[in-house]
């Protein structure tokens, strides 16, 4: 295995972020393993999306450093695909599904170049992987929420990155899309690719992800699901809202138990 010698897909060192003088994230440091699905989990306003945006260089860092495979982001831009939150997208924009997916190829093209036949084939495959090929000529406003999410996942896929950063891909999607995303995760993992998601659903986190980063303005814990998905970490992360969580934690133990049995 050469994996141990390769630098981590993302290593965050002493990251500090503020929003108009208010500290949002303080002293966050972690490293993630390659070829795993990783969830960023925490209560509302804990800074999950901010962390993702800070890592991607979309919002300024007050302090700290992020390395991608041991290098600064500028060197690894195209190896890193970003899927923004669904609410942050202008769904009335006059653009067709195929053109959105082809955007995943634009990073590789020079200013004056048009997508080649190969680029179109890659985009086609990405759409087929997410069962969206028949919608290729639809305007994005004419899709359901789940279909819209799949278009953006196809765009990320067409970028052929080695690291995927997604902001709440499971939020408000239908069952078919949820299944499609899980299938996508499996395929990407089989190719040794790394997936980092902001995730809000504690019921599914143990099932969908290999690794968890607990965030609440600071790093609470980061590690494999088996060792960090504990009552103690949940208490620390969700603090005051614990009473609401008791049921959830119980449920989670059960899913973990079920999983453990599945692996047997």
């Amino acid at each position: 295995m050469t994996q141990t010698t390769r630098p981590s897909p993302i290593s965050v060192n002493n990251l500090n972020m503020r929003y108009q003088y208010k500290p949002v994230l303080t002293d966050v440091s972690f490293e993630i393993p390659e070829g795993k699905t990783i969830a960023i989990v925490g209560p509302n306003g804990a800074g999950k999306s901010t962390l993702l945006k800070g890592i991607m260089g979309l919002e300024p860092l007050m302090e700290g450093e992020v390395k991608f495979f041991g290098e600064p982001l500028a060197q690894k831009r195209l190896a890193t695909a970003y899927v923004p939150q669904r609410e942050e997208i202008d769904w009335d924009f006059p653009i067709k599904v195929m053109d959105v997916v082809l955007m995943g190829r634009h990073g590789q093209l020079k200013l004056w170049q048009r997508p080649s036949k190969l680029d179109h084939e890659i985009a086609e495959q990405a759409l087929k992987d997410l069962q969206m090929w028949e919608f290729k000529d639809r305007q994005i406003s004419q899709l359901s929420g789940g279909q819209q999410q799949r278009v953006f996942l196809a765009r990320a896929l067409a970028q052929q990155a080695s690291l995927y950063l997604m902001d709440e891909p499971f939020a408000g999607v239908d069952v078919a899309t949820e299944k499609a995303i899980i299938e996508l995760f499996k395929n990407l993992k089989a190719q040794g690719k790394t997936i980092v998601c902001v995730h809000h659903d504690l019921n599914t986190v143990g099932e969908y992800f290999d690794w968890i980063i607990f965030i609440n303005a600071r790093l609470v814990a980061a590690g494999p699901v088996e060792s960090v998905l504990t009552k103690e970490n949940l208490n620390k992360t969700y603090g005051g809202r614990l009473s609401l969580l008791n049921d959830l934690t119980e449920q989670m133990y059960r899913t973990r138990l079920n999983q453990a049995h599945k692996h047997d």
């Binding site: 945006k53 991607m56 500028a74 831009r77 924009f93 053109d99 959105v100 990073g107 004056w112 970028q159």
Partner: peptide, 22 residues
Amino acid sequence: LVAFNRLQTVAFHPSLALSLGI
């Protein structure tokens, strides 16, 4: 004509454009 793709991506989603190195 020359910068159609860039102008389209930047207008559609500035953060996405940024993440593509534009």
